[in-house]
Every structure is written in C-alpha cells, then in structure tokens.
C-alpha cells in the first residue's frame, strides 16, 4: 500500500527542508544552491549570536547598570535598578576592542586582548591544574587497583579494569615523555602507550562518526516525516 503524502503546510518546515536539500546537493558537487545556503548560514548565524549576546549579556550587564533608565525601554513596570559604575571597565575595554575597525586607533585593541589573554591564562592555570591534572590523577589511583566485592573478597573484573586504566594512563604519559621530535618512539613502554592512545583515538573517531550519522538520520526524519509526512 502506498502511504499517502501528507505534505506539511508549515512555512518554517518548508524553509528548513529546502535549505537541507540545498546543502545535501553538495554531495553531487559544489553548486549555486549549496553556495546560497552556505551564505545564508553565515549571515544568519553571525546576526543571531550578535543579537543573543546583546540582549542576554550586553543589555543587562553593561547598558542597564550604566544607564538604569534604559531598563524602561524593555520593561515599564519594574523598579529602576541602581547605577553600577563597575560596568564602565568592560564597556571601555569593549569599545577599545571595536577600535580595530578604525585603522588609526587599532592599537587600542591590544588592551582588551591583553585582558582576555590574562583572564584565560589565570583561569587556565587554576582550572587545568585542579580538574585535568589533580582530579585525573586522583581518579586513577584514588581507589587503588584491588576493588572489594560486595560479598567479601575481591571483584576480579573491576580490579582488572582499574589495573588496565592505571597502567594505560602511565604508559600513555610515558609515550609523551619518551617521544623524539618527529614522533619516533624510543622505549617499549612508550610503544604500549602509543597503542593505548590509538584505542582512545579509535573510540573517539567511532563516537564522532556515530554522532554525525545521528544528525544525518535526524535530517532524513525531518525531510521524510515533518515535511513530506511519509513516516
């Protein structure tokens, strides 16, 4: 039995479906439809995130604290917030960042860049040392490799897994330390470390492919289901 077509009457669904087909046309070869969709994506994406950033960050954290009366524009029945002059600092740094648009003043942009790099460096030291260094070491050796079973004795499977995790981590680190420029592995332990890393890369690759296939299935479901009503 042929399934009757129940094509969507929703304008948004049609726009999404046509743009999807335009992008898929690239599988044949580069063509004007794909280029059109690609350029729409660039324009819409840039403007969308600008608008969201303006209304969710710039407006409540810079404009309203500096000019409380501005809050009346978006809400007439809420009380005026207190003026907060600390917002002057990010506002001035932000305007200095925009000075890149004026060649004569573009040197000013080095100040907000320095602030951003300093903040990134400061937070990175703390965050990476804490969560990616200390916590990972703690998680690897914290419970030891002999995991007790619920009914007494040792849980062999869990203990073996903990041993493989611990030794795999150590071998992986040895690989980083015993590799010469150009990727030459210098010790057998480092070679084992390289194999452990290859398993990780393989698993990550497999997961990435699955994620892309899931997206593809989602798009096909939307085309065949939401748009054409075949599913």
């Amino acid at each position: 039995m042929i399934h009757p077509l129940a094509v969507s009457h929703d304008f948004g669904v049609w726009v999404g479906a046509l743009l999807t087909l335009m992008v898929f046309s690239f599988l044949y070869r580069d063509n004007p439809f794909y280029k059109f969709a690609e350029h729409v994506f660039v324009g819409v994406s840039a403007a969308y995130w600008m608008v969201i950033g303006f209304w969710t960050t710039l407006w409540p954290r810079v404009i309203v604290p500096l000019i409380p009366e501005a809050s009346r524009i978006v809400s007439s029945d809420t009380p005026l917030p207190e003026r907060d002059l600390s917002a002057v600092v990010p506002a001035v740094l932000g305007l200095m960042m925009l000075s890149r648009l004026v060649p004569r003043l573009s040197g000013l942009a080095r100040w907000p860049t320095a602030f951003v790099l300093g903040t990134t460096a400061g937070y990175a030291v703390v965050r990476y040392v804490r969560s990616d260094f200390m916590h990972q070491i703690q998680a690897t050796i914290g419970d030891g490799v002999l995991i007790p079973a619920a009914g007494g004795g040792w849980n062999v499977a869990e203990s073996l897994a903990a041993l493989v995790t611990l030794s795999g981590t150590i071998f992986g680190l040895i690989y980083f330390m015993n590799t010469r420029r150009g990727g030459t592995v210098t010790t057998p332990a480092a070679r084992i470390g390289l194999l452990v890393l290859m398993v990780t890369f393989g698993a990550s690759f497999g997961s990435a492919v699955m994620a892309r296939i899931s997206l593809l299935v989602g798009r096909l479901q939307e085309l065949l289901g939401d748009w054409l009503g075949l599913l």
Binding site: Y128, A161, V164, T169, G172, L197, T200, F201
Partner: peptide
Amino acid sequence: LKVPNTAGQRALMIGVA
C-alpha cells in the same frame, strides 16, 4: 569505552593540562 579509552583520555588530559 570505559577502560582503555578512559586510560588514554586521562593521559591526554594530564599531558594537555
């Protein structure tokens, strides 16, 4: 995913940190 992958991820994370 749970065992050797975790070991490799941890080595990478410690190295990257």
